[in-house]
Structures are given as C-alpha cells and as structure tokens.
Nucleic acid binder design. Sequence first.
DNA 1: CGGTACATTTTGATCGTTCCAATCGACCAC
DNA 2: GTGGTCGATTGGAACGATCAAAATGTACCG
Lengths: 352, 352
Amino acid sequence: MATDSTPHANRKVTLTDIAAGCDVSRATVSLVLRGSPLVNKLTRARVEEELRRQGYVYNRAAANLRRRTSSSIALVLNDLANPFFAEFATGVDEALGGAGYVTLLGSTGESVAREQAVLGSLLEHDPAGIILSPAEGSDAGSVLRTIGLRTPMVLFNRELGGKASTEAPWDRLMLDNQRGARLATEHLIALGQRRIAFFGGHAGSSSCQQRHAGYVEAMKAAGLTIEPHWRIESAPNRVDAAAQCGALFFDAPAPTAAVCYNDAVALGLMLGLHQRGIRPGRDFAVTGFDDIAEAGLSAPPLTTLASTPRARGRQAAELLLQRLRDPQAPAQRTVVPVQLVVRGSSCPPPSA
Amino acid sequence: MATDSTPHANRKVTLTDIAAGCDVSRATVSLVLRGSPLVNKLTRARVEEELRRQGYVYNRAAANLRRRTSSSIALVLNDLANPFFAEFATGVDEALGGAGYVTLLGSTGESVAREQAVLGSLLEHDPAGIILSPAEGSDAGSVLRTIGLRTPMVLFNRELGGKASTEAPWDRLMLDNQRGARLATEHLIALGQRRIAFFGGHAGSSSCQQRHAGYVEAMKAAGLTIEPHWRIESAPNRVDAAAQCGALFFDAPAPTAAVCYNDAVALGLMLGLHQRGIRPGRDFAVTGFDDIAEAGLSAPPLTTLASTPRARGRQAAELLLQRLRDPQAPAQRTVVPVQLVVRGSSCPPPSA
DNA sequence: CGGTACATTTTGATCGTTCCAATCGACCAC
DNA sequence: GTGGTCGATTGGAACGATCAAAATGTACCG
C-alpha cells in the first residue's frame, strides 16, 4: 500500500503537494479546482485522482487573501438565546450557506461594550458584510468608528442611537412596530377594553418607542385617556417582566389589559398575573409581539403579532447579498408588515 | 486637514501603508502590533499614532496563513431554532470569544446531507476545531471521511452511528440520558402511576435509545409491565408530537402517564391532550427532558430534567480548547448529570 | 519551410502578515 | 584600532492560493 506520499500525513496537503504528485504546475491544479475549461480532459482526471488520493482540502483563506475577496459574513445578535433571534439566525445561515458564504457568529448579550468588542474581533476576519441586531443603547457613532465604511451592514430590528444614524449608509430591515402595536391595541378596544396599559421594554430602545407610539395612536383615535402609571418598563425578558407585574396595580384606576413590548415580556407578565391570582385571558387581557414558538402553547395561548423570524433572517441575508452585488445602490429601508394572531389571552374586560 | 494618505481611502489599510507612513519597516510595525518588547518606546508611539490615524484593522487571515495557525472554531448544530441549542450556542460563543476564537456557525436542520455539506464548507476555512451536535442518523464513517483526523472535534448530545464511532479519537460531551429518564420514571411511579408510556423521539437516535433504556430500567425495577403500544415515535418537535398524541389511546390498556423524549415533544403532547379534552397534570401525567425556558411557563408547568444548556456550551468549548492545548491526550467522554425538576405536569393517576 | 492560430501549461509576482538572519550604531574593553 | 556585546531595526523569504503574461506544443496553411 504505502507510497512516498502518505495520504494521512500529518502536515496539511497543499496545491504544491498535488502538483508534485502528478507532475504538473500549481497553476494547473488551481485551474482544475476551479473547473476551468482551459485544462485538458486527461490532465484534469489525473489531478482529480491525486486530489482524492491525498485528501486535499481547499484553503479558502489563502485564496481570499490573493483574490482580495471574502467568503464570510458576520452575524451579530443582541440575544441569541431568545428564540426569536435563534430562528432569525437559522434563516440567515440558511440563505448565506446557499450563496456560498459562511456565518461568523457573535452574541453580545445586550451589552454595548461586548458589541464593540465582538464587532472589532469579527472585523479582523474580514467579513464581506455584517448583519447586526444592535444591543439596546448602541450608538451609531461608535459603531461607525469601529466598522468604518468599507464593510456593508444590514441593521435588523432596532435603529442605532445618536445623530450619525441617519447619515450612515446602512441598509435596514425593520418590523412595522407601530402598526403592529396599533393593531393589537385596536383589537383590545374592539373587545370592549378601555383601561389598557403598555407593558415592558426599555423606553430608550427604538422598537419600544415605535410600539408605544402605535399604542398611543390607537388609544387617541378611540378617544381613550392614558394614565401615566400605565406605562411600565422592564428588561425585555420573562424574569424581569414577571417581577414588574405588580407595578400595574399600585395606583387606581388599574388597567384591565396590557399591550406588551414582546412575547417574552407578555409570557412573564402572565406568569406574574397567575402568581397574584389574576387569570390572564379571563380577568385580564394580554397581547405580545413576535409570535415565538411558545406563544401558541402558553396557557392561555398568546394573542400576538407574527413576524416570521426565519423568513426575516433569509430576507436580511438577501438584502446583504444584494448590497454586495451592487455596492453603489442607495441604502434601503425595508419595513416588513406584521400580522395579528388572535388567541386566548385577549378577552373583554371582566365587567363586560 | 487633507494629507497625502487619506484616512478614509477606498483601499484596505495594510502594514505596508503604516510602515510607509512613519518611515519604518513592515517588520517593526508588526512587532508593535504584537506588543513586542524589542521595539523602542519612541518608535512604538509613532507607529501607534499612525495606526490610529489611518484606521488600520488587523488582517488575521493573513497572519494565520503565515503562522500556520487558526483562530476560528466551527459550531455545527442539528437544530439552532430549538431553544436548547440556541442556549448551547450562546454558551459556546461566550467561552470561545473569551479565548480569542471566533465561531463559525453551521445549522444542519437535522439533515445528514446538509451536515456533510456544512462540514465540508466550514473545513475550507480551516477551523482549529469543531463542535458538532450531529443530525439524527449521522454516521461516524462519513463524518471521519470529510473532516479527517487533523481537526479535533467535540461531539455533543448524540453519538454518531456506525462502527467507526468507537475508534475515532473524538472527545464527547453527553447528557446522562439513561439516568435522567430513570429518575423521571421513578418519580411517576412514586406518585402511584402504573401505566406509563415512553413518548416521542426516533428510536434510531442514540439519546432516544438511552432515555428509553432508563425508562425500561425503572419500570422493570418496579415490577411493572410495558405494553408494546406504549412506545410512540415522533419527530423531536412540537408539531409532530401533537400529531402523534392520539396513538397513545388506540389500544387498551391506555397509559395514564408519559415520559417524553424531550421538552419540545412534551409540550406538543400536552397540546394534543388539551385538544382531546384530556387535562395534562390532572388526567394525565407528562415529563420532559432539557428544561428549556418555556418548560416553566407552560400550563401546567412541565416536570423535566435540567441540563443547563448554556453551561454545557461553555463546557464543550472548554473541552475543545483543552484538546487544542494538548492534542496527544487520550479522548475524553464526559457525561454530565441532569437534575429532576418537579412541576405541575406530573400527577397521580386519576383513579388514585 | 516559415508563419500563424489554437489549445494547454508554466513562470514568477502577488495578497498581508510573520519569521529568520543580518545589519547598524553605540558603547565598552583590551 | 580591533573585536565583542547590546538594543533596535530591517530585508527578504516564506504561508497557500491566484493572476497575467509568457512559453510550450501541435496543427494547419500558403
């Protein structure tokens, strides 16, 4: 069996090894690898046999260096553990993989400092582009400073803070937050609700502001007044939402329904209500935002706004790929509609 | 303002640009970047100023090429959209980022073919190592053939099929599936349950076999008989689990409890039970596996086995980093204990 | 037979970094 | 004045691929 060139050698197999192994030049092997029509049928066969024999694996980094190209894309998420973003990431990876790109993952855990660090570290790997769902409070100026203008970026889900945000040439993919929250609020009003709170999220975040604006819009349109203590902030996760539940009932008049910042918050709120002996979907109406998988499985199932995160992921990837094809095109701002999904958590007020 | 070397030029800034900009050689700049003590304080300051001025970003790919090193690690998951794996991925990325590695993500969607493709594609980026949670039915032989022996790998969650599996020098991080399922079954038996089914998962998967074995072990130890139709297979997700629910009740004697393959399946089963008017936690007991976030929030909350996926992610990363430090060490097989979390979904049988 | 066309292959430089050996100036000792 | 040591810097060859241009060989034509 054993020949001079051992297939399972310890060093990495390179173009040069293959070239030596079948008496052609490196250039020819390279042409074979890229399926060039220039190379003779016979030599191609010989080379391909040798590639197999030695177990060659292509070194894309070296090729990218020489060609001044890149075959990776950085995906930076504020919270990968949130199923909404996990689905999104799956969609992104699906689409990128199909286009021959590889996904460089970075999770920031909602920390602006980590976001800076992660972006810096991923940039050193020279991604062709970036898909960023910013951490809360992330600022356009500092992001611009670390990534520069060379690397195109698609912003997802949230706007960046600071004045630099409007000038920066980034594409955007945003949910129609305002309309979504308006739909949810109108739905509750149609059920007869009058005392409706807006619950959860940080007032600083752009998506939260937009959703709150939609809520206000619907309330005003219906001629309903909004009590100041009907606006409760919380971190956008279950645990903190459950903890803040009590704040809804400190002052009179207490609300009988709540439009929540997102599903995580809504599920947390329902948990908090349960603990107080208040039955969501009977004594108190709740709506969410996102339609994550468990929204349909909670008790009661959650009325919410569907945004199909996996499809959004594919869309964000498409947007970036398109930008890579045409770097000069003007920046796009895409707003995707959301759809109201009515389930058991929304109900008329107890008096009705 | 404008000098000869424009900071926001269109070409990428390289070592050579910096060197030219402050009249030193490339080598010196390289030494500065790596914080070498060899270089004079004054020159270091000059170089650093120039780096800032031109907005230099390090090209790690070029460095890796020259040094024959790698600073990335491939993370290949069978189902990123499952919150269990999303948490796991978060943990992996946390630990790898801390060690200066970047995560190359690949999601296979439980398809063996995609797993092969993804592994092949990621390998071309020359990762220092691989963390793989295999797709169901993935075979050790073909995996070995595509990744070879050069790149170390940590297997998570499932064993690979085929005989090559035992010989291959891979580290493993596995949950104590058998003991976990045994604990759940014993818990149900202690509540007075006698007719207990094992529900969900594919009989082919190693984790499913192990959990089933734990269930059988507990049943035998208690002297209980197992009806053949108490073993229902399903895809490991909610939708299919809900669809298979009816199969539990085709033949008599019908079970009054089910040990489920995992939480996703258990939640799906509860959904299916609801639809049949059977109240889980009252008329029928259910247990899960994984303790994903929504397990505590379902109605009723799910009795399950906690495996703290984020910590597992960190652990898998640690295992791989350790292997990179000492490539010669014998392969490890780590089995992590799981903990029974009793919640409302487990109950005595209705007759009791 | 020389010239030209064509198909195939090779040579050598190059991408941005790091490594190695060599260089340079300054200083000191003999 | 020669040689040696030291700190700081440098030139040039790598790493593994690609590219442009040049070099083969072969065939055909007048």
